[in-house]
């Protein structure tokens, strides 16, 4: 190095030039450009700098109050840890005892023989969410509502754990995406119908969403139609209604045939 740093033209030129560029761009980004914005949070120097720097603030301004739903909607908050909380002396064993009240409709070991859904091996997150929704009334059912009304949150967790622990029966027909109906395998992108398997297993699973194969045909059809008509609305932020309402009758039939294994 030749001479003191501050007299070296390379040092002064490069550091000084970069510094000037930085000052200039900070001025443009934090003061000059924000001055052309009409948001109140960009007015005034300090405001403008904070907003441009990215300090979290409330940008809504004056807006009408949120409209609340006239009907009951699901209030279940599902995260991957929702079911992780330590069960106080509960768990699968306690769930098995509680499940005695369910066997009449859902079968001795969770395998349905009627038009009620099969529960054996279902994802615990899905079971828990639906039980909570039956309890709150977000999912209407004259049969289920009184059965879950008196149960505590821990009871629902134990029931979910129990049924999730039972062996799942899979129908071989649903293993092969090549033979699945188009609506199941590819969906219809422009109608916002993704492949069923992108949430309901096979491709990947989404938290709180059940697998469907195999479930009784009538059950699947009733539910899909209820989503399509908006009579069932406990799907968070309409995620299933968005899909079902765009399906044709033929597509609904084809998909429930496929998932019930009745083709």
């Amino acid at each position: 190095m030749s001479g003191p740093l501050l007299r070296n033209r390379w040092f002064v030129g490069s550091v000084g030039g970069t510094f000037l560029l930085l000052v200039f761009s900070v001025f443009v980004g934090f003061v000059w450009l924000p001055s052309a914005q009409d948001d109140s949070l960009f007015k005034g120097l300090l405001n403008s700098i904070c907003s441009a720097a990215g300090v979290p603030r409330s940008w809504l301004g004056e807006a009408s109050a949120p409209v609340t739903s006239p009907v009951k909607v699901s209030e279940v908050v599902m995260t991957p840890t929702t079911l992780d909380e330590p069960s106080s002396g509960g768990g699968v064993g306690r769930g098995a005892t509680l499940a005695l009240r369910c066997t009449m409709c859902h079968g001795l070991r969770g395998v349905s023989t009627s038009q009620t859904p099969t529960l054996a091996g279902q994802y615990a997150s899905s079971l828990y969410k639906e039980l909570r929704d039956f309890q709150s009334g977000a999912r209407a059912s004259a049969v289920m509502a009184p059965l879950v009304a008196e149960l505590h949150d821990q009871d629902l967790r134990d029931l979910s754990a129990y049924y999730a622990s039972l062996p799942r029966q899979q129908s071989p027909a649903t293993q092969d995406l090549q033979s699945a109906p188009d609506i199941v395998a590819t969906g219809a992108p422009m109608r916002n119908i993704p492949p069923c398997g992108s949430c309901h297993g096979r491709l990947t699973a989404k938290l709180g969403v059940p697998w469907l194969d195999p479930q009784p045909r009538d059950y699947l059809k009733t539910q899909l139609e209820a989503f399509a008509h908006g009579t069932r609305r406990n799907d968070t932020s309409a995620q299933m209604r968005n899909i079902a309402r765009n399906m044709t009758t033929e597509e609904i039939d084809a998909s429930v045939d496929y998932y019930s294994g009745t083709r």
């Binding site: 948001d39 949070l41 907003s51 990215g54 300090v55 979290p56 603030r57 409330s58 940008w59 809504l60 807006a63 949120p66 409209v67 609340t68 739903s69 006239p70 909607v73 699901s74 209030e75 908050v77 599902m78 995260t79 968070t236 932020s237 309409a238």
Partner: peptide
């Protein structure tokens, strides 16, 4: 315009409930 929100509870309360 940086602003934070809890993504897990959008449907429960606040301006992103379904009816709003």
């Amino acid at each position: 315009r940086v602003e934070t929100i809890n993504p897990s509870t959008l449907h429960v309360s606040g301006e992103f409930v379904e009816s709003n």
